[in-house]
């Protein structure tokens, strides 16, 4: 019974194994980025960058069809452009960063959908928006694994400046010239993960696997390293749970995985030991004293 529910889908079907490998790769690469996005209060920026990738990927699609290379390159160019441009807009205009980001991603979404629709069918559109985690080919799997490897190595190397840049950017600026390097490397890593991940989860949902586990991890750990470990575990568990649930109930896999991560977030919010709701209720009388 347990074997049939939990193991057989992966043992019997190659597409499930591929989906599992792809999801684990995305989980390991995207979650450290998600944790730092969350700690820098840039969750919305992540969302905007993910949408911004859409027109780039769509232009790639327009030129070469559902080609991994063309869509990846298009997405990378668009993502990098937005990462640089959104900071620029908020610095030189009175528009607040969140407003400029909201404007940006609405335009990007509309442009992307139109561009895909010029040539493609609704199926292709769904592919770009929501990904095809059950149809990852070798090239896509290799791309996801390479992105995850680069991210893990880069985060390990840059860990100390990244933490400092989040906790006390002004201090880093006074003691070191690494501040700008750290910032842009981080943005580049974020774009890289969004572009890689969108083949599996689509531009609309890749941010989910990035931010939800990180937000959940906030309720379990009081250190950045701890948060990354917890977030990665949550992401991998959500991937397995989501894939199995979607297999047994014939539901789309991408949304099932993101929903599983959402359940983990909701549970953490309630029972998490670090500031979870359940912890706060008994402590209230003490804080009033």
């Amino acid at each position: 019974m347990i074997w049939e529910t939990l193991v057989e889908p992966f043992a019997a079907y190659g597409f499930m194994r591929r989906a599992l490998v792809g999801c684990i790769a995305v989980s390991l690469g995207a979650t450290p980025i998600g944790v730092f996005l969350l700690l820098r209060r840039m969750s919305l920026t992540g969302d905007a960058m993910a949408h911004a990738i859409l027109p780039g990927a769509a232009v790639g699609y327009l030129i070469a069809g559902l080609s991994l290379t063309a869509m990846t390159v298009g997405g990378l160019i668009a993502g990098m452009a937005v990462a640089l441009f959104s900071g620029f807009v908020s610095r030189v205009t009175p528009l607040r960063e969140d407003a400029s980001l909201a404007a940006f991603y609405l335009i990007s979404l509309a442009a992307g959908v139109l561009i895909v629709s010029i040539r493609g069918s609704n199926v292709d559109l769904m592919h770009v928006l929501f990904g095809t985690v059950l149809a990852l080919d070798d090239a896509a799997l290799i791309l996801l694994c390479v992105v995850a490897s680069i991210t893990v190595i880069a985060v390990a190397l840059l860990f100390r400046p990244l933490v400092l840049e989040c906790a006390d950017p002004q201090f880093l600026r006074t003691v070191s010239g690494l501040s700008a390097v750290t910032h842009f490397t981080f943005l580049a890593l974020a774009v890289l993960n969004l572009v890689g991940g969108f083949h599996a989860f689509g531009t609309l949902m890749i941010v989910g696997i990035m931010i939800l586990p990180a937000a959940a991890a906030r309720f379990w750990s009081v250190s950045v390293g701890g948060m990354i470990v917890v977030a990665a575990h949550i992401a991998v568990s959500a991937s397995v749970a989501g894939l199995l649930f979607s297999y047994h109930h014939s539901l789309p896999s991408g949304p099932a995985i993101i929903l599983a991560a959402g359940v983990a977030y909701a549970l953490s919010l309630v029972i998490g030991p670090v500031g979870g709701l359940a912890r706060q209720i008994p402590s209230r009388p003490r804080t009033q004293l």
Binding site: L164, C166, A167, D168, F171, R218, S223, G226
Partner: peptide, 17 residues
């Protein structure tokens, strides 16, 4: 200080910076 007070870092780690 511009330090984000909700940032998950301990006293000893902050001093060690």
């Amino acid at each position: 200080s511009e330090i984000d007070r909700s940032f998950p870092i301990s006293v000893v780690d902050l001093v060690a910076m």
